[in-house]
Nucleic acid binder design. Structure first.
Lengths: 342, 342
DNA sequence: TCAACAATTCAAAACGTTTTGAATAATTTA
DNA sequence: TAAATTATTCAAAACGTTTTGAATTGTTGA
């Protein structure tokens, strides 16, 4: 591998000049620059990243950690995002270090990468309330971007999130507008920030529609077909069964749909279904029978903003200026209809 | 962050001695070593990885590349392995760089990481015949381990693979022993090495059982429920429908099972099903109705051997000594029964 | 007591860059 | 033509380790 010195020796220049020439510094003579560039190409020169890192103090790496505990359910969406992230970081000539954690301490893998000085920053997925990881990274001053916003009020870190309150409100408002009054909500895991926000949105539209005690219509759980199935079972065996389901993911909606079919109930005639659609491949809303009404905001769409935010953060931007909340669009398909007369 | 120099200054030693003390060299005085170690702990010293890399010429990183083209199907198993890999590499104090490729050239992302001197080696998943990535890495002398063996005969690179020929042979032999003579095989994508081997195993047992022209019973495709469903449809609408299905994955088996249910066919009374089980979470063989007979070899099990092989490779071992073929075990459950009398 | 040897430690070089401060060459101004 | 600028280049230091070869100290044997 050719080094700066090799080029310098070849042209009778100093490494300093060669370095400047290749990095486009203005003070280097045009002719010299030309010669250096052609020599670099001829010798197939590639700057040694490690050396650059040593002097710059940056690693050029971004850490992404997956907690491989029980909720394997997160995997699908997690990887969807991680994959896209890797692509967009590559555009900034950064790379993604991927680490899977098995320990009980959620902070441990972050600590490990920090202490190895392996990364310049982290992207945190699936934040919870009072997230220990966020606290740790803030304490040591390590840059990070959160996918999803953990707290309710204003925060001082960078994040990209969708407006979960509005999404849930829009979805359940559609149902109340159609006359539904008994709406079951299969929400995400209770400790997740997005689940808290969606609950809030659901409550808001319930209040608007004069529905009492919305909380008794909410079930928290992992977003899987199994959860959807058992949730449908539970709600529909109540004395006052729901006429509609709101699901936090198309995966849960799949379970609900399966349960309805198995029990001779028709969607949308007997029961309407609305889901939030992350646009993950394994449960496409449009391929449901009937096609599913959703609030849609593809997970994929988060990748580029997250990577961009990280880039700006590492260029010294203020985290408070890097807070993006995007909104989900409501797409009405065939799984929703007026509430049946009772 | 404390450096070697800081410790040296603190104790009135040279950085060289401190370095040796911390790296357990024998020539350093026991008392000195003790003092150095306690000082290191007190100052919370962590060696700077980048500096170590510069001098050692190693990056401590292993590259894993996902080709994000059409066959999204690979994702599930890919991530299963990648996750485990990250864990086991961490045990060697190595990290995993994860890169997603979108270009048409399968070699491009490897080249990119190589030219940045970002990694010490690669782990290649889903090899195909005459894989260009393997050719490239061999040409430039970059260490790599292949998950799955690409060629038929002996090869000179390190790999971990399961014995696909035997797995397919065992599975189809089970069916022929039960009297089945019309066995449909929903195999993997035709360019994949494992699909070629399984075809071979299938052919072997067909020949043993006196079944003619086995190839007309094979369909190649992505291992998805959709493929299973359409494959079942195609085969069962033939004039001589199969009495059994052999699937390359439980995902395809799911599609077959769905098709049977939808069309009033019973498994195992009308049709038997055997699948190869990678033990991925989204399609558990044991949760099928009825529980699925499989040849089982969990994807997860590949992670540790792959990481170990990589470790040895980087320690200078000969790739030819690092070739592991493990065998899948046949687990008979309730989805297989004697062929129906015709 | 002196040489021979082993046990420790050290200074300096190396890895390949970037950056600093100074030096040289080229050009302009007076 | 000398002085003052400006444009260009350079040598050396820096980043934080590891490794090399030499130097120092301590110990043993004669």
């Amino acid at each position: 591998m050719a080094t700066l010195k090799d080029i310098a020796a070849e042209l009778g220049l100093s490494p300093a000049t060669v370095s400047r020439a290749l990095n486009g510094f203005p003070e280097v003579n045009a002719r010299t620059k030309e010669k250096v560039e052609s020599a670099a190409k001829r010798l197939n020169y590639r700057p040694n990243k490690t050396a650059q890192r040593l002097v710059s103090g940056k690693s050029g790496m971004i850490g992404v950690v997956l907690m491989a505990d029980k909720n394997r359910t997160a995997d699908q969406t997690f990887f969807e995002v991680t994959g896209g992230l890797s692509r967009h970081l590559a555009e900034q000539d950064r790379d993604l270090i991927f680490q899977v954690d098995i320990s009980d301490d959620p902070v441990a893998p972050y600590k490990r990468l920090v202490e190895k000085s392996a990364v310049d920053g982290f992207i945190i997925q699936g934040p919870s309330r009072n997230d220990a990881r966020i606290a740790y990274l803030q304490e040591i001053g390590m840059p990070f971007v959160v996918h999803g916003k953990a707290e309710v009020g204003p925060v001082d870190y960078a994040f990209y999130d969708i407006d979960n309150i509005s999404a849930a409100r829009d979805a359940s408002r559609l149902l109340t507008d159609l006359g539904h009054r008994r709406i079951a909500f299969l929400n995400g895991l209770q400790d997740r920030a997005f689940a808290r926000d969606r609950r809030r949105g659901f409550q808001q539209s319930c209040i608007e529609a004069g529905i009492e005690n919305p909380d008794k219509w909410i079930l928290f759980g992992p977003q899987t077909p199994q959860f959807g199935y058992s949730g449908a079972e539970e709600f529909l065996s109540r004395s006052e069964p729901p006429t509609a389901f709101l699901c936090a993911s198309t995966l849960a909606a799949q379970g609900v749909s399966d349960y309805l079919k198995k029990n001779g109930l028709s969607c949308p005639t007997d029961v309407s279904i609305v889901a939030h659609d992350d646009a993950i491949v394994t449960a496409r809303a449009i391929e449901f029978d009937p096609p599913l009404t959703v609030t849609r905001s593809p997970m994929r769409d988060a990748c580029k903003p997250l990577a961009d935010i990280m880039g700006q953060l590492l260029n010294g931007a203020n985290p408070k200026d890097l807070q993006i909340t995007s909104s989900a669009e409501l797409i009405v398909r065939s799984s929703t209809r007026s509430a049946p007369l009772i």
